[in-house]
Design a protein around this nucleic acid. Structure first.
Lengths: 225, 225
DNA sequence: GACGCCCTCCTCCCTTGGGAGGAGGGCCCT
DNA sequence: AGGGCCCTCCTCCCAAGGGAGGAGGGCGTC
């Protein structure tokens, strides 16, 4: 089952989102929060099953992108999309650079909203059409499309990638140690570093992430450089 | 990296297999064993990275399918393919029913052998063409193509499937307990049963298996029954 | 009604996983 | 020569995972 959460302080708006989802994404559970604090409480309780958090930028206890920042710090692996009335180009790009997986203007038509949600739940980035169409005038779009997916992998060192490969195939720390002929404590050090760099909390999460990231292809690419 | 093992008591034959693999599956590591006992020793050491074991049916310490039986008992999750001079139809079917993922006659031409190995490493079943072409005369092919992949899932009870779904999405036992509103000990009971029925040793292995088994589709199918 | 299966939950016990913190050696670059 | 990064390994500590074994209640079948 798909679970998503909307954090917005306007009950009517939450209801509207709920209606759109009920109509267009049947079987989806919607959690609601009217403040960042309450949102984080809910995330704490449902983190494992939460697929996407829609975050308003005008919550009473979070000014602008500050709320996103705090969420990213607390739950680096949780997909967060911004849902906002503002459409300022720099705000959108800043949100993406802070790790948001999407930015949905509140003015988005019903049909487009559904498409955006489906796209986000499918693991794709979503940006408002205006931003997508018109590449930035000054800078050449600082890592909006390319960097997010594999930037995390790029931060891994060579040995860490080796460990990650074995880890993602289900090997235990002990098994990895045997395979690479190092001490198990060394493997644990590598694993800790990998989890930290990937922003996940357990090897299980790392394995799921490896599936999404197409680790095998990345390693092949890197080797052929 | 792909790792496979050949267990055969003829050194020359092992060499021949090695040559075929070196030529057709570059980057593949080949482990060798000249007896079932030695094979099991090697499996013990490399289980996490071993992708396929090619088992001869005429090993000095294993008569016919007995070796397969012992391997299946000890390592239910290890893919084992039979490599044999015999081509008796009943032997082939018996091997598949015992959980072998394939049966390769030693008379298989070089090119076909490579194709068979690729197919097996890709997770597909491989049977000698004679058997594949001509369906059994008496019985209607007792579960050769359909049963092996999902028979394990079919053994799970309803609650176990629910737990498996959450587990496969990375949820911890505690998270599953919250989500299903039962005690964590109950979840542990379910998880133990799931691991046993799937023939895997850890939740991590179960998650990887879920990816191969297309769990989501299975659940949908079962619900729509 | 007795049996079996499922779901629930418990205790006891051990292994594995992961974090914190420290430490030494190799290698590269300035 | 010094600094920085990587790899290696250690100890101490705690949380999570998993097995063994037992137990009670619900529900359907024979």
């Amino acid at each position: 089952m798909t679970t998503l959460m909307v954090a917005d302080d306007h009950p009517l708006f939450r209801d509207a989102i709920g209606a759109v989802i009920a109509a267009g994404l049947p079987g989806t559970r919607l959690l609601e929060a009217d403040s960042l604090a309450r949102a984080m409480q809910e995330v704490e309780r449902h983190e494992e099953v939460l697929d996407l958090l829609l975050l308003d930028l005008n919550l009473p206890d979070a000014e602008g992108l500050d709320g996103l920042s705090r969420l990213r710090d607390a739950y680096p692996a949780l997909p967060v999309a911004i849902l906002s009335a503002e459409q300022d180009r720099r705000t959108v790009l800043a949100a993406i650079e802070m790790g948001a997986v999407g930015y949905i203007p509140k003015s988005t038509p019903r049909g487009d909203l559904l498409a955006a949600l489906r796209q986000l739940l499918g693991g794709q980035l979503y940006l408002p059409p205006q931003v997508m169409r018109r590449p930035p005038p000054a800078h050449p779009a600082p890592a909006v499309t390319a960097a997010p997916p594999d930037s995390r992998l790029a931060r891994l060192t060579g040995k860490q990638l080796e460990v990650f490969e074995l880890l993602s195939r289900g090997a235990s720390n002990k098994g990895i140690a045997r395979e690479l002929d190092v001490a198990e404590t060394t493997v644990k050090t590598h694993v800790s570093a990998i989890l930290r760099k990937l922003g996940v909390a357990s090897r299980v999460q790392a394995i799921l992430l490896a599936g999404e990231l197409d680790l095998a292809r990345y390693r092949a690419d890197r080797r052929s450089d």
